[in-house]
């Protein structure tokens, strides 16, 4: 079976500014894929190109096997999207918006379902010009999901959402993905993405730097950290420093574990030094530090390659 979305050797420029370089990837059906990278990396540009909003120089974008171009893109009937910020008509109500963009069978049922899933009942019949930032954002997400499409593309969907709305959205994304919907989500809120995404596309300066799974990335970059609560943090830090353990600048006592031996060594050292250990936690590698590390490495590699080319 062909993948729901396949991008091959995509190149895109604005004038003589080359923004996407030979981007290629496939999305697996039913997966939640995070698209991450620094500001200006080309995330929104990539998404817009996939949605037929931009012309591209070369390469191909296929949704369910059909090519997407700005002129022709019937396969977008299988796609829902929210790019950058929601487009809202101030003179229409939220309900009017959903009605306008609902498509296919069971429109009314779908509209009612998405409203209750995102908890929008209280204001959905009001004119959108009176909506708050988060209300508009939720309406934008509802518009992306109202047709319960096969592929959902969300650019910064958590922008401006309160904790409850963030949780509602997370639950909705997970339950829809279990039913087979594929999600491509870009976000700078990495802690949130870490809880959602299974696969990751890391993009920097318009190129895909790494395509991997969340698990692999965290494991490979997983510099595990041991966090300690002690009866005397100051003394503990001194002891660790003397014994040449690597600590972190964190105000809590944290030791970087080089191997499996580190934990018992640290505990022995502290107890023998007369410090009581109250609690010990192993911190998993997190997405933020892993991402920064990957980006650093890839930029170093790129500079080296450039220097060699000269």
């Amino acid at each position: 079976m062909s993948s729901i979305l396949s991008v091959q050797n995509l190149n895109k420029s604005f004038g003589n500014k080359h923004v996407l370089h030979d981007v290629s990837f496939d999305l697996k059906k039913g997966h939640i894929v995070g698209l991450i990278g620094p500001n200006g990396a080309g995330k929104s540009t990539l998404m817009k190109t996939m949605l037929g909003l931009f012309n591209y120089d070369s390469g191909s974008v296929k949704i369910a096997g059909e090519t997407v171009t700005p002129q022709k893109h019937e396969s977008l009937s299988k796609v829902g999207a929210l790019i950058e910020y929601p487009g809202i008509y101030p003179f229409l109500t939220g309900w009017d918006h959903l009605q306008l963009f609902a498509d296919g069978d069971h429109q009314l049922i779908h509209i009612q379902k998405i409203i209750s899933q995102l908890n929008m009942d209280s204001y959905i019949k009001r004119k959108a010009k009176g909506y708050s930032l988060g209300m508009k954002q939720k309406l934008g997400i509802a518009l992306a999901l109202v047709n319960f499409p096969d592929l959902v593309i969300l650019d910064e969907p958590m922008n401006g959402l309160d904790p409850q709305a963030t949780k509602d959205l997370r639950d909705l994304i997970i339950s829809e993905s279990q039913k087979g919907t594929t999600f491509l989500i870009s976000s700078h809120i990495l802690s949130e993405l870490q809880r959602l995404a299974q696969d990751l596309l890391i993009i920097d300066e318009g190129s895909i730097v790494q395509q991997t799974t969340m698990h692999e990335l965290l494991a490979s970059q997983g510099k595990q950290t041991i966090m300690l609560m002690t009866s005397d943090d100051k003394k503990a830090r001194e002891l660790l420093k003397k014994a040449k353990f690597q600590t972190t600048p964190d105000p809590r006592v944290e030791v970087v574990a080089k191997d499996d031996e580190t934990m018992p060594e640290v505990l022995r050292l502290l107890i023998e030094g007369g410090v009581d250990v109250l609690d010990v936690t192993r911190l998993e590698g997190n997405l933020e530090s892993s991402l920064l590390e990957v980006l650093k490495q890839s930029r170093i590699k790129k500079r080296l390659a450039e220097e060699q080319a000269e």
């Binding site: 009937s77 929601p86 487009g87």
Partner: peptide
Amino acid sequence: TMEFQYGTMKQVLYRRYSRG
């Protein structure tokens, strides 16, 4: 121009309908 002003042009375009 309303569609550009309200930022709705994207939503209007990324559907199954062609630009034309």
